Amino acid sequence: MSFAIRMGIPEMMQLWTDLSNKHVNGTISKKELSLLKKWGKALKLLSQDPTYPSLQSHEIEPLTKRYGIKVWQSYLENNTSRAMRMYWVYGPNRQDITIIGLEPHPEDKKNGAYDKISLSAMPSFGE
């Protein structure tokens, strides 16, 4: 089963568009290129199988409560300081996954660390 990957609005859509445009125009920095490559690989794996082992996808309950729908976290990288994490939800359409956040892993899982995570809105059903 494969999923269509969508970007949350406006932040995730804007970030993906900016990185893609910089790559095409040759103005992307090394750090941005590294992020684009890791994110692209993670998106490909996610679209094919959200439970792919290297993604280590799991629900983040504090974000689920805040967002009102199950919010999942998947790894872009691991075993590095402030490793990037991708936050996503199923929907809005059947067979869709929407990326709603991309941030470094919170350093401290306690004391409301996930309160600081900024999430995009989901596109409307049918968009």
Results as ranks from 00 to 15, higher is better:
residue 19 L to V: 09
residue 14 Q to W: 03
residue 87 Y to W: 02
residue 27 T to N: 08
residue 22 K to V: 05
residue 64 T to G: 10
residue 89 V to Y: 04
residue 38 K to Y: 01
residue 73 Q to Y: 03
residue 53 P to F: 07
residue 80 T to I: 13
residue 79 N to L: 12
residue 9 I to L: 15
residue 76 L to W: 02
residue 83 A to G: 04
residue 50 P to C: 08
residue 77 E to C: 00
residue 80 T to W: 03
residue 59 E to H: 07
residue 73 Q to C: 11
residue 47 S to G: 15
residue 25 N to V: 05
residue 6 R to Q: 12
residue 81 S to N: 07
residue 38 K to P: 00
residue 78 N to H: 11
residue 16 W to Q: 13
residue 79 N to M: 11
residue 60 I to Q: 02
residue 84 M to T: 05
residue 50 P to R: 10
residue 77 E to P: 01
residue 78 N to Y: 05
residue 41 K to M: 05
residue 13 M to I: 06
residue 20 S to R: 13
residue 43 L to R: 11
residue 61 E to C: 04
residue 60 I to F: 03
residue 9 I to R: 14
residue 66 R to V: 00
residue 66 R to A: 09
residue 61 E to N: 12
residue 75 Y to V: 00
residue 24 V to D: 10
residue 50 P to N: 08
residue 21 N to G: 08
residue 66 R to F: 01
residue 18 D to G: 00
residue 75 Y to P: 02
residue 78 N to L: 07
residue 17 T to A: 15
residue 68 G to H: 05
residue 19 L to G: 10
residue 70 K to D: 06
residue 8 G to H: 08
residue 60 I to L: 09
residue 38 K to W: 01
residue 42 A to E: 05
residue 60 I to D: 02
residue 64 T to N: 12
residue 26 G to K: 13
residue 83 A to C: 03
residue 40 G to P: 04
residue 69 I to M: 15
residue 89 V to S: 04
residue 68 G to Q: 10
residue 19 L to W: 07
residue 81 S to T: 07
residue 89 V to T: 11
residue 17 T to H: 14
residue 5 I to K: 13
residue 35 L to W: 03
residue 40 G to Y: 02
residue 60 I to Y: 01
residue 21 N to D: 12
residue 70 K to H: 08
residue 53 P to R: 14
residue 39 W to R: 01
residue 57 S to F: 06
residue 82 R to A: 14
residue 18 D to L: 01
residue 65 K to Y: 06
residue 86 M to Q: 09
residue 40 G to C: 05
residue 61 E to A: 12
residue 23 H to D: 12
residue 77 E to I: 02
residue 47 S to R: 13
residue 49 D to E: 12
residue 7 M to H: 14
residue 46 L to Y: 07
residue 30 K to P: 01
residue 73 Q to I: 03
residue 87 Y to S: 00
residue 44 K to Q: 07
residue 56 Q to F: 04
residue 35 L to P: 06
residue 57 S to Q: 08
residue 87 Y to H: 01
residue 45 L to S: 08
residue 72 W to H: 09
residue 37 K to N: 12
residue 81 S to Q: 10
residue 16 W to V: 11
residue 57 S to H: 06
residue 29 S to G: 07
residue 36 L to S: 02
residue 43 L to A: 10
residue 78 N to S: 13
residue 12 M to W: 00
residue 80 T to G: 09
residue 11 E to H: 14
residue 77 E to V: 00
residue 38 K to L: 04
residue 88 W to E: 00
residue 15 L to T: 13
residue 73 Q to L: 04
residue 18 D to F: 01
residue 59 E to T: 14
residue 68 G to V: 11
residue 48 Q to W: 06
residue 82 R to H: 14
residue 53 P to K: 14
residue 29 S to F: 05
residue 13 M to Q: 15
residue 26 G to A: 14
residue 31 K to N: 08
residue 32 E to H: 11
residue 56 Q to L: 08
residue 70 K to N: 11
residue 46 L to P: 06
residue 24 V to L: 11
residue 78 N to D: 10
residue 58 H to M: 13
residue 42 A to I: 01
residue 84 M to D: 10
residue 79 N to D: 15
residue 13 M to T: 14
residue 31 K to H: 06
residue 85 R to E: 04
residue 9 I to H: 09
residue 47 S to N: 11
residue 41 K to Y: 07
residue 86 M to G: 04
residue 26 G to T: 12
residue 28 I to S: 03
residue 66 R to L: 07
